[in-house]
Simulated scan of single mutants.
Amino acid sequence: MFPMLSTENLERALGFYRELLGGTETYRFPEGEHPVFLVLKLGESDVGLGAITSDSRPLHGQPLRPAQGHRIELCVYVDDVDATIDRMRASGVPILLEPTDQPWGERVAYVSDPDGNLVMLTRS
Rank of each mutant, 00 (worst) to 15 (best):
M1T: 12
M1P: 04
F2P: 04
P3V: 08
M4G: 14
L5S: 06
S6V: 08
N9Q: 10
L10K: 02
E11L: 11
R12M: 11
R12W: 05
A13V: 13
L14D: 02
L14R: 04
F16C: 14
R18Q: 13
E19D: 15
G22V: 10
G22K: 05
G22F: 03
T24R: 15
E25G: 11
E25C: 13
T26P: 04
R28H: 03
E31F: 02
G32I: 06
E33S: 14
H34C: 05
L38N: 00
L40P: 05
L40A: 12
L40Y: 04
K41N: 15
L42S: 13
G43S: 10
G43Y: 03
E44Y: 01
E44T: 12
V47L: 13
V47Q: 05
V47H: 07
V47E: 09
L49S: 02
G50V: 10
I52H: 02
I52L: 08
S54L: 06
D55E: 14
D55L: 04
S56M: 07
S56L: 08
R57G: 03
P58K: 10
L59Y: 09
L59N: 07
H60M: 07
G61N: 09
Q62S: 12
R65E: 08
P66Y: 01
Q68Y: 09
Q68V: 14
G69T: 13
G69F: 07
R71G: 12
I72P: 01
I72L: 12
E73P: 04
E73W: 03
L74Y: 11
C75D: 14
C75S: 15
C75T: 15
V76L: 13
D79S: 15
D80E: 06
V81P: 00
V81L: 00
D82Q: 09
T84M: 03
T84F: 00
I85A: 00
R87G: 04
R87M: 05
M88V: 10
M88E: 03
V93Y: 04
V93I: 15
P94I: 02
L96H: 05
L96Q: 12
L96K: 13
L97S: 04
E98F: 02
P99H: 02
P99F: 00
Q102M: 15
P103M: 06
P103C: 07
W104V: 14
W104L: 11
G105F: 06
G105K: 06
G105T: 11
R107M: 03
V108A: 00
A109F: 00
Y110R: 03
S112E: 12
D113L: 12
P114H: 05
P114M: 09
P114C: 11
D115E: 12
G116P: 08
L118A: 12
M120F: 03
L121E: 03
T122P: 00
T122F: 00
R123S: 09
S124P: 10
S124W: 03
S124C: 11
